[in-house]
Simulated scan of single mutants.
Amino acid sequence: MKNIITLFAITVLFSCKNSAQNNEKQQEVINAKPIEVPLKNGKAKAYFASGCFWCVEAVYESIKGVDEVINGYSGGHTKHPTYESSNTGRTGHAEAVEVIYDPTVVSFSTLVDAYFASQNPTQVNGQGPDKGSQYRSIIFYQNDTQKKIILEKKEALSKKLDAKIAAEVYPFQKFWIAEDYHQDYERLHPNNPYIRNVSIPRLKRFKAKFPKELLKGTH
C-alpha cells in the first residue's frame, strides 16, 4: 500500500511540473518577443541556464573577457521567483546566470560554445545529480543574430553526437537576481561537499576541453 501511495505522489508531482512547464502562461514566455539588454560601459550581458547556477557561475568566470557572473532565475511566468518557489517546478523558471562580458574580448558565439562544452548536452531537465525543470538547460537570445548562432550550434552538435540536444531556446525576457547567499558560492565555499564533489569536477572537465587561450589563469 505504501508503494502505491508513493507512486501516486510521484505521478502527481511530475504531472504538476509538466503542466507548469506547458501551461498557457509559459507558452506566452516562449513565444514572446525578445528583449535586448543595451551595453553598459561597453559591457554586454548574456543569459544561460544549465543545471545548478553555482556550477555555471564558476564556468563562465573562468573565461577571458567575462567580468562578472550573477546567479538568478529566468525563463518562467511568475514574478519575483525565489529559490524555494523555483524548486517547486511550478514557476517555469530555471536557475540561470547573467554573464557580464566585454564583447571586444569574448564573443557571444564563444559563450555559447562554452555553454555546450560545460554540460551534458543530452540530459533533459537537469545536469548531473540536479534533476527537475528548475535545472533544465535553456539558452536565451536577445535578437535574431543570437538566435541564429544558438540554433546553428545546437544543430551542429546534434549531428556530431547523433543525438537530440536538450537545451531549450528562449527569447530573453527578465532575469531575477537570486538571494545573496547564492552569489560567488563556489569561491566562498570551496569545502562545501557539493562544491567539492560536483561543481569543481564539472569546472575541471570544462577547462580540460576548452581552448586554453580563452581561459583565465584563475577565476
Rank of each mutant, 00 (worst) to 15 (best):
K216R: 14
N31W: 02
L214A: 07
Q127V: 10
T104R: 00
K216N: 15
E186I: 07
V66H: 04
I100P: 02
Y135L: 09
N31M: 07
L39F: 05
I100E: 08
H189F: 11
K204E: 14
L13I: 13
G128P: 12
F210H: 09
A20D: 08
F8Y: 12
K64R: 15
D67F: 04
P201F: 02
N3S: 11
K153N: 08
Y115G: 09
V29Q: 12
D130E: 05
V105R: 00
L188R: 13
K25F: 02
G128N: 12
V37N: 04
I10M: 14
V69G: 08
I35G: 01
Q27M: 09
L151V: 01
G42Q: 03
N192D: 15
T218R: 05
R205M: 02
Y194A: 11
F175P: 10
V99F: 10
F53L: 06
S109W: 00
K148E: 15
G75A: 04
A44Q: 09
A46R: 01
Q21Y: 11
I149R: 02
C52Y: 02
G65W: 08
H93C: 01
R187K: 14
P129M: 05
P129A: 09
F14L: 15
D102P: 01
P193I: 09
K148S: 13
L13M: 14
A178L: 08
K154Y: 02
F8H: 03
F116Y: 15
K148D: 15
I100M: 06
T82F: 04
D184T: 00
N31R: 13
K40N: 08
